[in-house]
Design a protein around this nucleic acid. Structure first.
Lengths: 223, 223, 223, 223
DNA sequence: TATGAATGAGGCTTCATTCAT
DNA sequence: AATGAATGAAGCCTCATTCAT
């Protein structure tokens, strides 16, 4: 009988061997599935691939998931969980436009481009859209739209607080995200960073926001 | 009992029947393959699906393509052929910034969002990237980059011709394309137009370019 | 309606059912393959034939062999293993020529003609030579030639021990084997014993050797 | 309308091109079929292989043979036609045993080993025995046995004419053929001459016959 | 829980044969 | 006579899933 104190899941076990705690095993399986699905796609990934990837036998998977489809759905449920937009640094509302723009871009990069699972999951969603239409709609409605609305509010607050002219990006905050989406799409298709270079894209992105949020400052400096 | 009148050979047979010219048949097969691949993905599409879709027997496909992979490659070769950036209306260099911006956005939408094959092909590229890495690299190098360079020149010409302040988008013309990429990615994943609506995205995109290319005019109007 | 008495687990199941030890199953498969290949040839034998022959499903074969070709090679490896020339009765070096000749012929018949697998394997080798050239060369070098050399030594020992005139068959021991090869070839092509009859061929073979090894005795007796 | 004088079939046409005389084409097809069948076996040879080998298209074959099986049967009918044992040099009945033995061996080699089609046909017979049992039986009865009987008569005549002791090979003339069968079998399986070398086998064969037909002379010489 | 032999459905590909040209 | 696109029936092999161990 195990101690009432949960035994530490021992996340750093040398290699997943026999009889791990079910949650640990399940997580390992999902990790393996994400890697394999994103490498070969859902249909071209075999249960053996996944099993081998996490040091299990084919049959062993069925002790944790009832089918390949179930693995896929569990995987997306985990990957599409709303990001922790909360535990990010507070928006520097007092700071200048440049700092605000950089903060915004940093948030977007941290949440979308610097998490490898993000590109991989997006590729999966694109490839297997037919298989998970409902889940995607749910995600769009519960995660994507609220985040976009929140972004709009942030922009509005900044503009109002600093008495700036209201740019189109305040009404259409998705425009703020577009450059990151562009980078994501490129990575999805090229499988590598865009030729321009992520760092340069990031700087361009910041500059873009500055020009849009405070064109007067930009014109003054450009003189 | 057949009519004594010999039945007319039925010159207008309902569908392409036996013994079409090879190029015609091959094109039909690629059309069918594009439709099926984009609906189910490469691995989940069967040769039977493709054959049925173009009114051929499964084995008949092999008179034109040696394998499913070969169909896939031929399909991408055809889909990734450089677009006819040439036969588009000439850029209205004399016109104002608004007309120029609209012209740009129209071009991008016509070339990328309003051709159904474009979204479908991009989704295929993302899903089956591993299968066609080389082809994708070639396309990026021979088609994507030159187009981006050309876009940069157009922007530079406009700014120079009208004596405008040089925005970041002149140096980083990919920023001009980002909103379209954003829409593309959304379509790839949602399988439908973004919630915002394509028309509104288009207008926002035009406004964005106007603000960036001629901030003075924007500020004057916003006053 | 099942008997209330639990049906005995039927320890003597009619045929090897589920989950045999891999080596046992593999041997069964090779047995089945030998029978089927020799009946129809390699190309005309289907995996279903083999599977049915050993009470397995088609797919089950692939748990033990990766392909039809691999079954074929494993089969030949097993069939071409060097025979146990060792555990045969010792050569009667003291006995007379007649006994020696009969002993030789018995050995050859036992090793080549009275093992059904031998004819079958030879026919396979002839039919599918292109598929297994290397294996055949190895076999010729490692099995056939050493045996022929050993045969030469036996003949030499007999002749020397009994002070007989040295026949050409001492220098060319393959001549001793020729009648058996003749019978083998006939069986390979006719699929049955030669018209002359194996028993008569055997006796003729013994007589031939006697005439050659001890012509003096033969002449004396023939007088 | 062709001249009543048969146009010379032009056996040395550069390459079988369109519209040859049917018999010429048919012969070409059989030649091609023999080569391909013997290289890959019946089942593994495709109609395309045969067609390509004789410069025809797949469909073209069907203008001359109704099916693959029909080609196979026509091929064997041609290959198993009785050899021209007649037009060989007359047996040197007056000559000595050595000359007679050499003559015999020469006949056997000329008829069986030095005709490449012979080995090839035998291999086909062994491989596809099930397909042509009846034909093989007919051949054995009408060609093989009569030849063996004739061989027996030749041996008897020689022995009687020279007053030699009657060896077992007079009663069992198939023993005379065995060394050649041995060589044939080796070639069928190795696809090349035996390691011993055909020339040496031939000389051994001659010596063997001399020892058997005239042991007295052999003993005298060996003294 | 875990293993891996076994199943059975289904996919890709081949190929003898047909037939419009 | 000849061509080659087309058909349709197999055949090899894969793989999700089951189950005895």
């Amino acid at each position: 009988m195990p101690s009432p104190i949960a035994p530490m899941p021992d996340a750093a076990a040398p290699a997943g061997r026999r009889r791990l705690a079910p949650q640990v095993r399940a997580a390992q399986i999902l990790d393996a599935a994400l890697a394999e699905f994103s490498e070969h796609g859902f249909a071209a990934t075999t249960m053996d691939d996944i099993a081998r990837h996490c040091g299990l036998s084919k049959g062993g998977l069925y002790a944790h998931f009832a089918s390949k489809d179930e693995i896929f759905e569990a995987l997306l449920h985990r990957s599409l969980a709303p990001p922790e937009w909360q535990d990010m640094p507070a928006p520097p509302i007092e700071a200048g436009t440049a700092a605000f723009a950089r903060w915004l871009v940093d948030r977007l990069y941290a949440g979308l481009l610097e998490r490898p699972a993000a590109v991989v999951t997006l590729r999966l969603l694109a490839a297997e859209r037919g298989r998970v239409k409902d889940l995607v709609e749910l995600w769009e409605h519960n995660v994507v739209r609220p985040n976009m609305a929140m972004l709009g509010e942030l922009l509005h607050a900044h503009v109002a607080h600093h008495g700036l002219a209201s740019s189109v990006i305040v009404r259409e905050p998705w425009l703020v995200v577009s450059p990151v989406m562009h980078a994501l799409l490129t990575q999805m298709i090229l499988g590598r960073d865009p030729s321009v270079g992520l760092e340069r894209m990031r700087e361009g992105h910041v500059e873009l926001l500055c020009e849009l949020l405070d064109p007067r400052a930009y014109l003054a400096q450009a003189k």
